[in-house]
Amino acid sequence: MRNPGRVDPAPQAWADALRAVVQVRRGHPHVSARPAPPPFEYVYRPPRSHDLQAIHERVLEADLLQRLPEVQAIDGMFALPRRLRYVTQECGEFGAFYRPADAEVVLCYETLRTLYERGQDQQRASRLAEDHPLRYTRANIRFIVLHETGHALVHLLDLPVTGRQEDAVDQLAAILMLRFAGVEETPAEVIANLRMAANWMLSDSTGAYDLEAYAAEHALGEQRYFNLQCLIYGTDPDSFAGMVDTGDLTAQRARGCARETRLISRAWLRLLLPHLAPGYEIYEDEAARYLEQ
């Protein structure tokens, strides 16, 4: 059994790297006098449909988007050229997306409803804890919103992505969840959230696909699932050795996951460090030493 008090090496290394290369240098003579970036904005748009009104009222009362710990952590961290807005709204269908023209990350009320219903189905089928539907919904909201935030950062910071962007922002979402967990969350709870997000990727799995599915911008749900499982396994292969036995990961893929997790973390660190906002200044030599390890 995994020790819930143990700190996973990969996310801890990412945290240590940030602490090593990012310094608060107020008043330092070499810090540029650039203005601070605008803070994120959070908007909960009223739905037209009566059956979504209760969901709107709950997310508005909870200030759902602003209270996501990972979003809180990166609010103001990057020198964005314009304000990034987080929005909940009625969409007419399940979904979430980034709207470049308005710099908006949009989460649909229909998505919240569908996620909660799936959590209820799992609770009934497996006799899970009473709070499982809410935990399942929240875990998936965090991953989905961070996935779309990845699209926003790629667009607003003009970050290079040489592969499939959908895969890249899946990776960033996982890294942010590993790095910026809630203050009271244990590493075990963080991993549980990621595994619930991975579970959702299999929700529409049929095992049989047509040409349109293979040509889609997203990888197949099974591929996204195993990619995320590899990132989880790669944080601590010893503690997660059982994932291979349970079929959550193949032995062949597992052998390279620690290296894959490390390379992905380093790549995103390298991409994002040059865009840190004032107050998060970089010591270039320390950054270079870490990235050469």
Rank of each mutant, 00 (worst) to 15 (best):
N199C: 06
M177E: 09
M196A: 12
A181W: 09
D210N: 15
A208L: 14
D204P: 00
A197H: 09
P187L: 04
M201K: 12
L194W: 03
A173F: 02
M196N: 12
A198T: 09
V169P: 13
D210Q: 13
A215I: 00
Y214M: 08
A216P: 04
D204E: 11
E212T: 14
Y209K: 06
L172V: 07
I191P: 01
A168K: 08
L178R: 02
L202N: 10
W200K: 02
I191N: 00
L211Y: 10
D210F: 10
T186P: 06
A213Y: 11
M201G: 04
L202P: 05
A216N: 12
V183N: 06
W200P: 00
V183R: 14
L211T: 11
D204W: 01
A198I: 06
A215F: 07
A197W: 05
Y214D: 07
S203R: 14
A174H: 06
A213E: 15
Q171C: 07
A215M: 10
A188P: 04
A215Q: 14
D170W: 06
A188M: 02
E185C: 03
M201T: 09
I175P: 03
E185R: 09
Y209M: 07
E184A: 15
E184Y: 04
G182V: 00
A181D: 11
A197K: 07
T206Y: 05
A213V: 08
L194N: 06
N199H: 11
R195W: 02
I175Q: 10
L202H: 10
A197T: 07
I191S: 01
E212M: 10
M177T: 02
Q171W: 08
Y209H: 13
V169N: 12
E185S: 10
E166F: 11
Q171I: 05
L194Q: 09
D210A: 13
D210K: 10
A213I: 06
G207H: 06
E185Y: 01
L202W: 10
R195P: 06
E212G: 12
A208M: 12
A174E: 04
V190K: 01
A181T: 11
Y209A: 12
T186F: 05
A198S: 14
L176K: 04
A173P: 08
E212D: 15
R179N: 03
T186W: 01
T206S: 14
G207Y: 08
A213M: 12
L202K: 13
